[in-house]
Amino acid sequence: MQGLRRALDALYLAGGVAGAIAIVAIGALVLVQVLGRQAGFHVPGADDLTAYAVAASATLPLAYTFRHAAHIRVDIVIGRFSGRSRHALELLVLAIASAVALLFAYACLDTLIDSWTFGEVAQGMLAVPIWIPQIPLVFGSALFALALVDDLVVAASGGEPSYRRAAERSAQERAAEEV
């Protein structure tokens, strides 16, 4: 069990790191375009690559962001409960969110498969098959669904979901920042 836990955590972190690489790539691509224009050269398709990197940066770290309690929600109702009733509510919320995330992951996969079967090719200066830049979407959304189901299982077996532990940590950090 410990091994599985470590493997899953490493997987979520990898998604976060991949998202970070995507953001650096966005910066680098835009910078090369700006500098290139001054120097009189042009990177064909840099704007399309930038758009793909944005999609990657938005989806790959979904699970990592979730584990760090950085996805926000309205806790005005749930925050009033504690103990067993709170636990039951968290289970319900996790079940709903897991269902949505599974549908989301399935939709991303379905989109990629459509792009593959239609033989769809990017319209810009780089004639890349569209399913290739859609890979991060599938990985990111699948990882997100996994993270939600993971916490659903943890909570169902009586444990504390990851985002609640992370929320407490970051609340303490914020308090420290302001003092």
Partner: peptide, 21 residues
């Protein structure tokens, strides 16, 4: 430039192709 054809055209006339959406 906004597609491969305008990109090639810019190259052929010795202009700097610039992508602006």
């Amino acid at each position: 430039t906004f597609n491969a054809a305008t990109q090639r055209f810019a190259q052929l006339v010795g202009a700097t192709p610039t992508t602006v959406q």
